[in-house]
Amino acid sequence: MTVDLIEEIPELSDALSGRIETDALLKEVIEDLRKVTALLDDTTIAASERAEWAHIRSELINELRRIVKRNSRSISN
Rank of each mutant, 00 (worst) to 15 (best):
H55D: 08
V36P: 02
L12S: 12
L5C: 02
S58W: 07
A51G: 05
D23L: 00
G18S: 12
A24I: 05
A46N: 07
L64P: 00
I9T: 03
K69H: 12
S48G: 12
E28A: 15
L16D: 01
L33V: 09
L60E: 06
L12P: 08
I30H: 09
I56N: 03
L16S: 00
A46Y: 08
V3P: 04
A47R: 03
V36E: 09
L64C: 02
L26D: 04
N71A: 10
D23Q: 01
N71M: 10
E8R: 15
W53L: 13
P10A: 05
L16R: 00
L39E: 09
D41Q: 07
I9M: 11
L26S: 03
A47E: 05
E59H: 12
K35N: 01
G18N: 12
L40W: 13
K69A: 11
R34C: 08
D4V: 07
E28H: 15
R70E: 08
I9K: 05
T2Y: 15
W53Q: 11
A47M: 04
E8N: 13
L33F: 10
I9N: 02
S17Y: 02
D4F: 08
K69Q: 10
I9A: 08
K35E: 03
A47W: 01
I56G: 01
T37K: 12
A24P: 09
L25E: 08
E31T: 14
A46K: 07
E7W: 02
R50K: 09
T22D: 01
S17W: 01
S17T: 03
K35M: 02
T44S: 13
A24H: 05
I61H: 07
M1I: 01
I67N: 09
T44G: 08
D4S: 09
I75P: 07
E63R: 14
I67L: 15
I61M: 09
D14F: 06
E52D: 04
E28S: 14
V3A: 06
L64F: 01
V36A: 06
E8P: 10
L16C: 00
A46E: 10
V36G: 01
E7Q: 03
K35D: 02
S48C: 11
E11L: 04
D42S: 04
R73K: 11
S74V: 15
T22L: 00
A15Q: 14
V29H: 07
E52I: 05
S13Q: 02
E11T: 02
V36N: 05
D14T: 10
E21Y: 06
T22M: 00
L39M: 13
T43W: 04
I67S: 09
L12H: 12
L40P: 10
I61G: 05
T44R: 09
N77S: 12
K27E: 01
R73S: 06
P10I: 06
T2F: 14
T22P: 03
S48H: 12
V36F: 05
N62M: 10
V3G: 04
T37N: 14
A15N: 14
E49H: 09
K35P: 00
E59C: 11
E8A: 14
R73P: 00
K35Q: 02
S72R: 09
R57I: 01
